[in-house]
Amino acid sequence: MGKNNQGTIKDIQKISEEVYSVKIYAPTVDEILPGQYISILCEGLTFRRPFSVSDFDNHIITVLIKKRGKGTEYILSRKVGSSIEFSAPLGNVFSVENKKTLLIGAGIGAAPLFYLNKKLKELKVKTFFAAGFLSKDDIIVTPHPTLSRKGRGEYDFVSTDDGSNGNKGSICDYLEKLIAEFKPEKIVSCAPRPVLKIVAQTAQQHGLDCEICMEKVMACGIGVCRGCVIQLMQGDRVINKTVCKDGPVFNGKEVVWQ
């Protein structure tokens, strides 16, 4: 009933050294928008595990899952055809607007940007998708094969920390260059917290709009338990917002970085 759904795993594909693309058939889910996430029930665990949606098309939800603990191990151990219970859709959305947009992903953080990039391209909004990874084997191959370019997925720019593919270094090292060359009106990012902080601050220095997608351990998924709050500065007041319901997408200018 409502946001609690039963689905079927349709496909599990390994798409990088540690990341898998999981497709779930969800007959009761009619719409999920870029930025929103689903939260999957994992047998024996208290918390459902949240995953940004990388694509949604005709009741098929795609999420990218990196093996990193009991929850992700449980999901990835499920066989194609097995049923899966999850809450969806949860969270707020990226604003889809006609502004030249620079997308900055890092590691598994690229996940929600695939879906946003697809939507923006459908609307003929100019985008530039830059992503950073540790090494060439970590590069997440796009979940949208039609947008993929050989070896680089659908990225317009790739950096790897060890320089084994694309430009050497952290994606943060290239922010200024990317802004200077692409001249975006807006930056959208999903990445580990330290990267988000740099992206948000850089966007602010350049007077650019900035939306960031954040992650936190969550319990309820609908904003009631107050377990996943972050602080935002709105006007001259610091207020608590939940990543699970008020987010995961926030205005980069408002986030208080501790």
Partner: peptide, 12 residues
Amino acid sequence: TYGYNNEFDVFC
């Protein structure tokens, strides 16, 4: 665990 009022109506 359940909010202030009808928040869980989205689930039940």
